[in-house]
Write a protein that binds this DNA or RNA. Structure first.
Lengths: 213, 213
DNA sequence: CTTGACAGGGAACACCCGTTCTGTTATCAT
DNA sequence: ATGATAACAGAACGGGTGTTCCCTGTCAAG
C-alpha cells in the first residue's frame, strides 16, 4: 500500500503540518490539525494521519503527544560527504585511502535521494577549465564513488599513463580498446588501450554553486 | 539576567534536549527530561527550564505539551524547492507566479548552506543540449531565483524577444548594450539591446545527477 | 540566630491529548 | 435490494502533561 492518491483533506493536513513545524519547531496535536483543517472530530484526523503514514509520508509515534514526524525532514536523510581535496588535470585524483576515517574537517551534506547511502563517496573541487569537455568548470564540486572498474557509459575519472593527466570522460570498452567520450556531444572521443587508463572513480553528482545568492 | 553560569544539571538537560530532538524530531516532555537527567520531580525540571529560558538558550511555549524550542540551530536546514517544470530553448522559463503557493507535488530538498533560506527559488529540469555553452546539459537541474533585473556577472536565464529563445548566459550591461557571455570561456559572447532581453531569473545552483549510483 | 534567596523534592490538580467505540452517509459491485 | 467498504462525526475514556502549592535543606548576609 505504497501510494494511494491523497485526498484534498489529506493534502491540506500535510501542508499544515509542514507549516506548523516550520513555525513552531514542534509538531501539532491532533486537535490542532483538526482545527486548522476544519475537521470537527479527532477520530477523523487520526484516521487520515494513519492514511498518510501508510503512504510513507509521515511517521507516527503511538501514544505520544505530538508524535508526528515528516519523513522528508527525517534527520537520517542527510548524508555527509567528505570534501577531500581538489582535482587538477595534471595530477591523479586524490582518492581517500581509509573509507572509515571520517574527517569532518570539511564535508558537504546532501540528501539521501541524491546520493543514496553515501557509501564510498567523496567530493572534490575542480580546479581549472580542463574538464570543460565534460561540462564541468572551475569551482564545480564533483561527488565521486571510489571504484577501480567502470561499466560502459559511466562518467569516470581516469588517469592516462602516457600523457600523465586526469580527465573526466564517459567510459566505453569496445573491441578491446577504451573509448573515452566527452559529455559534450559536440566534441570528439579519444581512444586508448586498457593498459594506459587507470580508473580512479565514478562521478555520481556534479554541483555548481553560484556565489552570492 | 542574561547569562548566569549553567549548573551541571542544566547543561545536562540542554544536551539531552538536543539529542532527543535530533533523534525524534519533536521535543521531550518535562517528565522525559526528568527521567533522562535523573530528576524525580517535575517541578525541578520546570524550574531549570525557566532558568535556561532566562539565559536565552531555549524558548518555552507555556501550557503546550513539548513546547520547547532550541534557540540555537533550531531552524531546519533542509529547504524544499519546488520543481516547477522544464526549460527548453524554444520557450520562456515557466516562472511560478505565486510564491506562497507551496506545491509539494514535486520538490527537491537541499541544505540551507547551499541555497540559503530558499526564498523565491524554484527548480527546472533542462531539456536538450541548447544550454551546452553554459556547461549545462540535458537532464541537469537548475535552481533559480525569481528576479527581473540582473547585476553584472550574474548567470541569468533570458528570453530574447527577436530570436524567441531562452538562453542561460552571464549578464553584463556595458555601454548601453547587453553582453551575454557563455560560461564556457572558449565560446563567443552575443550582444543585444536591453529592450530585446527579458531576464527571467538568476541561476543559483546547477545539479547534475548521474543515474544508477 | 534570624532572614532571605536559591535549589530541590513530592503530590495534587486541571486540562490536554491520543485512542477507541458507536453511529451515519455515500458509493459501488453483487 | 444488499452487503462491503471508505470517509466522517461525536462522545467518552484513560493516561499524559504542564502547572502550582507546600515542604526541606543549604548558605551567606544581616
Amino acid at each position: 500500500m505504497a501510494k494511494g492518491k491523497l485526498s484534498t483533506r489529506q493534502q491540506r493536513m500535510l501542508t499544515f503540518i509542514r507549516d506548523f513545524l516550520r513555525e513552531n519547531d514542534y509538531p501539532p496535536t491532533i486537535r490542532e490539525i483538526g482545527r486548522a483543517c476544519l475537521i470537527s472530530s479527532t477520530s477523523v484526523v487520526n484516521y487520515n494521519l494513519n492514511k498518510l503514514e501508510e503512504c510513507g509520508l509521515i511517521n507516527r509515534n503511538l501514544r505520544v503527544s505530538r508524535g508526528i514526524q515528516l519523513t522528508e525532514a527525517a534527520p537520517r536523510n542527510l548524508v555527509p560527504i567528505p570534501l577531500v581535496g581538489r582535482i587538477f588535470a595534471s595530477e591523479p585524483v586524490p582518492v581517500p585511502d581509509a573509507p572509515a576515517s571520517f574527517a569532518p574537517d570539511e564535508a558537504i551534506n546532501l540528501t539521501r535521494d541524491l546520493v543514496g547511502d553515501g557509501a564510498d563517496l567523496f567530493a572534490l573541487e575542480v580546479r581549472g577549465d580542463s574538464m570543460i569537455d565534460a561540462m564541468i568548470g572551475d569551482g564545480d564540486v564533483v561527488v565521486m564513488k571510489r571504484q577501480i572498474e567502470a561499466r560502459n557509459g559511466d562518467l569516470v575519472a581516469v588517469w592516462l599513463n602516457d600523457s600523465e593527466e586526469t580527465t573526466l570522460k564517459h567510459f566505453y570498452l569496445e573491441d578491446g580498446r577504451v573509448r573515452l567520450q566527452p559529455a559534450n556531444p559536440t566534441m570528439q572521443p579519444i581512444y586508448a588501450i586498457p593498459a594506459n587508463v587507470r580508473v580512479q572513480g565514478k562521478v555520481v553528482l556534479v554541483l555548481r554553486q553560484m556565489e552570492a545568492i
